[in-house]
């Protein structure tokens, strides 16, 4: 076995495909990956069947890069399967790490989403009221769909994860650092996020001063000064509370950080940390003044929890009038 190349698997669960593109963003270095690894599973670019994975020995895959959140039975099945078959499981990208965009659905639930998608959306025409069913009987036999969950989960909420690689998508430089670490075996302690433990501000070259925010602007409303901290100019920027590693790409072109690299080491709730930072520097003496300033920030929940709602302290909007649901509640795994 020692002269064999290590086996690499890549999988996408509930994701947009951007992480797959990011891997290709390595450009010619992708050849180094192909040279260093034996790619045994990558449904996005090569034809594999789940049965191929099921047929593997436990732990046969050396490294699995798993992107996407867990939002349905199929995602969860593959998470369990790849965990079983992989020595090292990496939560690759913001969705598998923190839930990210798919996780914003935790502000609603399955019923509300189906109601919108299959009935209320202006582009929907559904006179027969058809909604997806987990099982449907058709003349040819029984059809099955994966069950759609009420709550989006992160990969680590479903199976144990060895490493986290943040980013939406992870920058090529971050992927390279991770791959090199895996190839060389110089890995941080299991459970670590691979990346520097400072925030985007550290890499951002804009001049920072003491802050006093009078109001927020949307990016299209102002031409920001090219040299001054965007937050000081009233542009929402999550860089104050977001792990660096991206090279401060967004702030450097005048667009506030959206927080895709997630929180720093030890932070339990990314959105709360962004909020506490911003709320601390509002130019307000009274609660009313503070509220008036915050009213100029549209969709605060979406801004604050864009990438980390499912792994925040609250995880989702309360269901059933905020009544606590019994632990081990199974209804969310029922099909629609």
């Amino acid at each position: 076995m020692s002269n064999q190349k290590p086996k690499l698997a890549l999988y996408w669960a509930s994701s947009c495909g951007g992480c797959e593109i990011a891997v290709l963003g390595l450009h010619e270095k992708i050849l180094n990956v192909a040279e260093a690894f034996d790619i045994v599973f990558w449904p996005c670019v090569m034809d594999f069947k789940y049965a191929d994975v099921e047929a593997m020995e436990d732990g046969e895959i050396d490294v699995c890069l798993f992107n996407g959140a867990i939002r349905n039975d199929e995602n969860a099945h593959m998470a369990h399967l790849l965990r079983q078959k992989s020595k090292v499981l990496v939560a690759f990208g913001a969705c598998s790490y923190g839930g990210s965009m798919p996780g914003l659905a935790n502000f609603a639930d399955r019923e509300a989403m189906f109601q919108w998608i299959y009935f209320d959306s202006p582009s929907t025409v559904n006179p027969d009221g058809v909604v997806p069913q987990k099982r449907s009987d058709v003349p040819e036999g029984e059809l099955r769909l994966p069950g759609f969950w009420n709550t989006v989960k992160t990969l680590a909420q479903v199976v144990p994860v060895d490493y986290f690689l943040p980013g939406c998508p992870p920058e090529a430089s971050s992927i390279e650092i991770a791959i090199n670490a895996i190839v060389s075996g110089e890995l941080p302690p299991p459970g670590s996020v691979i990346g520097p433990d400072v925030t985007v501000c550290d890499e951002c070259s804009r001049k920072k001063s003491e802050k006093k925010i009078q109001r927020f602007y949307r990016p299209q409303e102002i031409f920001p000064d090219p040299d001054i901290c965007l937050l000081e100019q009233g542009l929402f920027c999550a860089g104050i509370a977001t792990r660096s590693g991206c090279g401060a790409k967004c702030p450097s072109v005048g667009f506030g950080c959206r927080g895709c690299y997630g929180p720093n080491e030890g932070v339990l709730d990314h959105g709360a940390k962004i909020l506490t930072g911003i709320a601390s520097v509002l130019d307000a003496m009274t609660a009313e003044e503070a509220e008036a300033i915050l009213d100029t920030l549209p969709d605060p929940a979406g801004y604050l929890y864009r990438f980390h709602l499912p792994d925040s302290l609250l995880r989702r909007k309360a269901r059933g009038n905020g009544q606590r649901q019994p632990v081990g509640e199974t209804s969310q795994r029922e099909p629609a």
Partner: peptide
Amino acid sequence: SGCRICNNM
């Protein structure tokens, strides 16, 4: 990271 959020707190 020198964001200076704390400076005038």
